[in-house]
Amino acid sequence: MKGVPFHRRKETKLVLRYLIAAFLVVIFVFPIYWLFAISFKTPAEIFAFPPVWYPKSIQFNNYAVLFKDGDAKTVGNSLVLASVSTLFAMIFGTIAAYSLVRFKTGGENLAVWIISQRMMPPVAIAFPIFLFYVWLGWVDTYIGLIILYTAFSLPYVIWMMRGYIEEIPLELEESALIDGCNRWEVLWKVVLPMARSGLFATAVFTFVFSWNDFLFALILTRTEVMTYTVQVTHYFGGQSNFWSKIAAMSVLGTIPVFITVATLQRYLVRGISMGAVKG
């Protein structure tokens, strides 16, 4: 390409980058499109060969069946469990992170010990927790799963918020203290507004972690607080699979995450770019 002007070569590279990016987007987005398409297809279209790339007419029967049979309430259960546990984890985790940063609680190594607890595989403690919950009578209850999800989310929240709080200048807090604020007011009026992007970014990931849980929901729920991740597995059978229900339930279980990420997208992008995993 020696005879090609520099600006032409630059434009060619840019076009190639866009083409590669578009190709990758199609690859990653197609499974999502196919999931939504199946949820609106008739059984004949689902099993047709060659494949029917889009439904001939939009069918809402697959969703109607889920609501009629009461299966859709499992999405509501997941929403309650993930939202409440995320709220508690963010409250307690932010307070703990502030204590680690400003008061050096537990010394320099406590934060590392806390995040190491998140590295423990959940299956290693699933059976002891089940026995403990049977003794407490917390199996198939909201309080049991909320406490468990909160406990497992706390190390992640503390570690992330610790990094965000460290980025806040100490002088701002000292000025607020001189003006008459106590520590709680400093946390509420200075620290939280300054770490707002990190706060929302951490909350989104914490919500998704709880939302996608399968192991604990499978072991600790029966009928009352069954989550959608467990409900989907009921549509897989030894003789046949109910693909229309699988697709429709998966779409219902995906929509809350899409809405959450889309709503908090600007905070999410800023929060990730703030270097929250420093230290």
Score class of each variant (00 low, 15 high):
residue 2 K to Y: 02
residue 4 V to L: 09
residue 4 V to I: 14
residue 6 F to E: 10
residue 8 R to E: 03
residue 8 R to W: 15
residue 9 R to D: 04
residue 11 E to Y: 08
residue 12 T to Y: 02
residue 14 L to P: 01
residue 14 L to H: 09
residue 17 R to Y: 12
residue 24 L to N: 13
residue 26 V to W: 04
residue 28 F to N: 14
residue 29 V to S: 11
residue 33 Y to F: 15
residue 36 F to W: 13
residue 40 F to A: 09
residue 41 K to R: 02
residue 41 K to G: 09
residue 42 T to W: 05
residue 43 P to F: 03
residue 44 A to D: 14
residue 46 I to P: 00
residue 47 F to A: 11
residue 47 F to Q: 02
residue 48 A to R: 12
residue 52 V to L: 04
residue 53 W to C: 05
residue 57 S to V: 11
residue 64 A to H: 09
residue 64 A to G: 15
residue 65 V to C: 04
residue 67 F to S: 02
residue 77 N to H: 06
residue 77 N to L: 05
residue 79 L to V: 08
residue 80 V to A: 02
residue 81 L to I: 06
residue 83 S to G: 07
residue 92 F to Y: 10
residue 94 T to D: 08
residue 96 A to G: 00
residue 100 L to G: 06
residue 100 L to T: 01
residue 100 L to Q: 06
residue 101 V to E: 14
residue 102 R to G: 04
residue 104 K to F: 03
residue 104 K to E: 12
residue 105 T to I: 12
residue 105 T to E: 00
residue 107 G to R: 11
residue 110 L to M: 11
residue 111 A to D: 01
residue 115 I to R: 07
residue 117 Q to L: 15
residue 125 I to L: 15
residue 127 F to T: 08
residue 130 F to K: 04
residue 130 F to G: 06
residue 130 F to W: 09
residue 132 F to V: 11
residue 135 W to Y: 13
residue 137 G to S: 00
residue 138 W to A: 10
residue 139 V to M: 06
residue 140 D to R: 01
residue 140 D to T: 09
residue 141 T to G: 01
residue 141 T to V: 05
residue 145 L to C: 02
residue 145 L to P: 04
residue 149 Y to I: 04
residue 149 Y to N: 07
residue 149 Y to H: 14
residue 152 F to R: 03
residue 159 W to N: 03
residue 163 G to E: 07
residue 165 I to L: 15
residue 166 E to V: 04
residue 172 L to E: 00
residue 173 E to G: 10
residue 176 A to R: 05
residue 176 A to D: 01
residue 177 L to Y: 10
residue 178 I to S: 07
residue 182 N to I: 05
residue 182 N to L: 12
residue 185 E to M: 15
residue 187 L to C: 09
residue 190 V to P: 10
residue 191 V to H: 14
residue 192 L to H: 12
residue 192 L to I: 15
residue 193 P to F: 12
residue 195 A to F: 13
residue 196 R to Q: 13
residue 196 R to Y: 09
residue 198 G to M: 06
residue 199 L to A: 13
residue 202 T to A: 03
residue 203 A to R: 00
residue 205 F to L: 11
residue 205 F to K: 10
residue 209 F to S: 11
residue 209 F to A: 10
residue 210 S to V: 04
residue 214 F to H: 08
residue 214 F to T: 07
residue 215 L to D: 03
residue 216 F to S: 07
residue 219 I to R: 14
residue 222 R to C: 01
residue 222 R to M: 02
residue 230 V to R: 06
residue 231 Q to M: 14
residue 232 V to A: 03
residue 236 F to S: 02
residue 236 F to K: 05
residue 237 G to N: 01
residue 239 Q to V: 08
residue 239 Q to I: 02
residue 241 N to E: 00
residue 243 W to A: 05
residue 245 K to M: 09
residue 247 A to N: 08
residue 247 A to Y: 08
residue 250 S to G: 13
residue 251 V to K: 04
residue 259 I to D: 12
residue 259 I to E: 12
residue 259 I to Y: 11
residue 259 I to T: 07
residue 261 V to E: 12
residue 263 T to H: 08
residue 265 Q to D: 09
residue 265 Q to E: 09
residue 268 L to T: 12
residue 272 I to Y: 14
residue 272 I to S: 07
residue 273 S to L: 12
residue 274 M to I: 10
residue 275 G to K: 00
residue 275 G to D: 02
residue 276 A to Q: 02
residue 278 K to A: 05
